[in-house]
């Protein structure tokens, strides 16, 4: 909406906030400033769209392709340098959001990638599969609902079969619904979140472990919500606290086997989770305004963290949580 770099701000001065106030949906006109060469520097405040955003809603679990503005997962910007050459990764929730950013980055770093997603997320998943194949890497699309233990076991077996092994597991898929009162949380909803966010990682890690050789890495997606929960995310936030905790427990358990376990803690990130019930409309239109950088993060801004935690160069990092919180939250 507004540019704040030092050269242009002198010129624009008064026009900026007035425009913010007057325009109903200024963010719709913005496109992520993605197609930049790597290196150099940009003001992080101005790098991506800022609130206010357009009010928008999709049925659970949402499609990135229908968000305004479209999230940046690094499609045009991520440049690899062989950091994961020959690695084999399974990413749950790899169709959109941070999982998609990880999938694109992993492929560009030389890894073969299997992604899991819900069948209704097929349009997003197709794009990711194409992007992985465009890098000349193997891609496996494995749709299915990870609330089933039987499916979780199949998921791992199919990924191992398609990729010829497995040495990176990113347990990223999650359900999040904003519900202001505990009185309105049904047992069905509570169970659905627990199954997706807590049981599924348990089942998937358990199934994957026999395939993971020393040097393998497990990465869980936790959240700023693990440390500083919003009142309307009572259910989701406690699963992220559990994720933060299992990362630390399993790091101790699997260290002796040469397997590293780490977590990623995002702040407010612009993903389909937020437009499909994860945030109220009131939160969505000013999403990220509460952060010190004045905007939500984009999935692409976490890609490098997933790569770092997966790659062999990060070999002493285990039981740690790496954050991208925009100045809020405390991993």
């Amino acid at each position: 909406m507004s540019t704040r770099d030092t050269t242009r701000r002198q010129v624009m001065t008064g026009a900026t906030l007035g425009a913010a106030a007057a325009m109903a949906a200024p963010a719709a006109a913005q496109e992520p400033g993605a197609a930049q060469a790597r290196g150099g520097k940009q003001n992080p405040r101005d790098k991506y769209p800022k609130p206010p955003f357009k009010s928008q809603s999709q049925p659970w679990s949402g499609l990135a392709g229908r968000m305004e503005p479209r999230p940046d997962h690094g499609e045009t910007s991520y440049v690899g340098s062989g950091r994961l050459r020959g690695r084999k990764a399974l990413i749950t929730g790899g169709d959109s959001g941070m999982g998609r950013a990880a999938a694109i980055a992993f492929a560009r770093e030389g890894a073969d990638v299997a992604i899991n997603y819900l069948p209704e997320e097929e349009p997003d998943a197709r794009e990711v599969i194409d992007l992985i194949r465009r890098e000349g890497r193997k891609a496996a699309a494995i749709p299915g609902d990870i609330r089933s233990e039987a499916f979780c076991r199949q998921l791992v077996e199919r990924a191992v079969g398609a990729l010829g092994g497995l040495d990176i597991l990113v347990s990223n898929a999650a359900r999040q619904q904003s519900i202001p009162s505990i009185l309105d949380v049904t047992t069905e909803e509570f169970d659905r979140v627990m199954k997706t966010n807590i049981y599924a990682p348990f089942w998937i890690i358990k199934a994957a472990l026999p395939h993971l050789e020393p040097g393998s890495a497990i990465i869980g997606t936790t959240s700023e919500q693990a440390y500083n929960p919003d009142p309307d995310l009572y259910v989701y936030a406690q699963t992220k606290a559990a994720t933060m905790n299992y990362v630390k427990s399993l790091a101790k358990q699997l260290g002796p086997k040469g397997i590293r376990v780490n977590g990623v803690a995002p702040g407010p990130i612009w993903t389909p989770l937020q437009v499909s019930g994860g945030a109220s409309q009131g939160k969505l239109v000013t999403f990220g305004a509460t952060s010190a950088l004045g905007r939500p993060g984009q999935p692409a801004e976490l890609a490098g963290i997933f790569v770092r935690l997966a790659e062999d160069d990060g070999s002493y990092t285990t039981g740690n949580i790496y954050g991208a919180g925009g100045g809020q939250g405390q991993p």
């Binding site: 405040r45 109220s280 009131g282 305004a289 004045g294």
Partner: peptide
């Protein structure tokens, strides 16, 4: 220098709290 186009650190928690409310509570 032009004024900041940012929510201040002391008011950010207020906005964050408001973002989580609905209905009459909002």
């Amino acid at each position: 220098k032009p004024p900041p186009m940012a929510v201040g650190a002391s008011q950010a928690p207020l906005l964050a709290a408001l973002q989580s409310l609905r209905g009459r509570d909002f």
